[in-house]
Design a protein around this nucleic acid. Sequence first.
DNA 1: ACAGCATTGTTGTCAATGCCTACATTCCGA
DNA 2: TCGGAATGTAGGCATTGACAACAATGCTGT
Lengths: 223, 223
Amino acid sequence: MSERAYHHGNLRAEFLRHAWEAVDDAGAEALSLRQLARDAGVSHGASARHFRDKQALIDAIAVEGFERLNAAIREAASADAPFEARFRAVGLAYVGFAVAHPQILAVMYTAKHETSASEALLAVSHAGKNDLVALIVAAQEAGAIRAGDPEELAMIAFASVHGVASLATAGLLGETPMTDAAASVIGFVWAGLVAARPVRSGHASATRGQISANAWPDLAEPS
Amino acid sequence: MSERAYHHGNLRAEFLRHAWEAVDDAGAEALSLRQLARDAGVSHGASARHFRDKQALIDAIAVEGFERLNAAIREAASADAPFEARFRAVGLAYVGFAVAHPQILAVMYTAKHETSASEALLAVSHAGKNDLVALIVAAQEAGAIRAGDPEELAMIAFASVHGVASLATAGLLGETPMTDAAASVIGFVWAGLVAARPVRSGHASATRGQISANAWPDLAEPS
DNA sequence: ACAGCATTGTTGTCAATGCCTACATTCCGA
DNA sequence: TCGGAATGTAGGCATTGACAACAATGCTGT
């Protein structure tokens, strides 16, 4: 199988592999279809048979990125451990991926995907959050964390951790090592999830009636 | 001044203005130096006198973006209002900018800037966080929120809000309006800032001694 | 006023890229 | 076996960013 005659055999995978590496260590800007064709020992028009566009290739990279990330998240979430440990593990899995593949992560989150929006990409991009929601629901049912819309709590946690990753790759963390920052944020969020109710600065704490649902915090604008 | 002879007068600003608009509603990919030259009624090599690179122009856009964002944050932080209102206002200012200029925000946070790293860009990119730190310090001194490293608390808040913005522009918020999501996250974080101490699930609440500092939450990895 | 010089803008060129069309080769199922 | 579908090739085209040589302009010191 050394001398390939005409048909490559598995060109799509080869393209995706090289493209992943190129983006991973040089960013999406550095991606060249012609260079990829050269790498694969194939002519410059060949990619069109497998990826309509350059954007289609980038979307495929993003999909693969989400799949790998989702796998890591799912594994962390389904471990045999207390809820807090699993929660922390999920966050650290996300951060770990972000540290290892910042350029890929950037591709995954580029707003560009919003418009072209292949539904496959949309699907995988939601899967990670869904696992987190499931974990939160389980923790709620076990009484480990406070009640409340799990979608919303998951969004809060997800956003916070993703924000740390984003800040880190943008170099806005300064001295702080990313893992420390992530652990800190995760701890903060977890504390918020555990707290039965926030302690308002001066007021007495046991005034309002119901224990759980929408009482905390306000969702509307301050107005 | 209709017929410009040779010298444009203020080409750099003109380039920056058009470039901002181009990026703002089509993304950094859509930016073309030659098109900008056409827009400015100037020849295609002229830009080199003002921006060494295309990247230099993009960096300039990022700097301007941070400056506008910082102005909004500073104004919100320095309002005459209770700390919570100011804190929320800062968060909403950030979100407001992110909603209005997602593409610009993407440019501002692209990891690319980490490597080329014009120190001017680094400086403005930190200014927003510094204002938030100042607000937190003031709130701590007034006893409105708990003690703790203000840099770290600011990072947590900043990351959380930025994460929401990032998720929103990536289309990962689903139904939820971005402002609702942002308000929710801001409320969550504020509650965490106010809480004197987290309520651990099963344990009694008044065991440990000191009221404030590093007792909450754990910064190290779970190990 | 004016000469000299740095700044700014022009023109032409080059290599590279993404995409398109026409064509060649291979694969696979009826 | 044969014919269409899939895959890869070859060439071309418009666009782009960068570069170099050159021209026009503004500024400064005398």
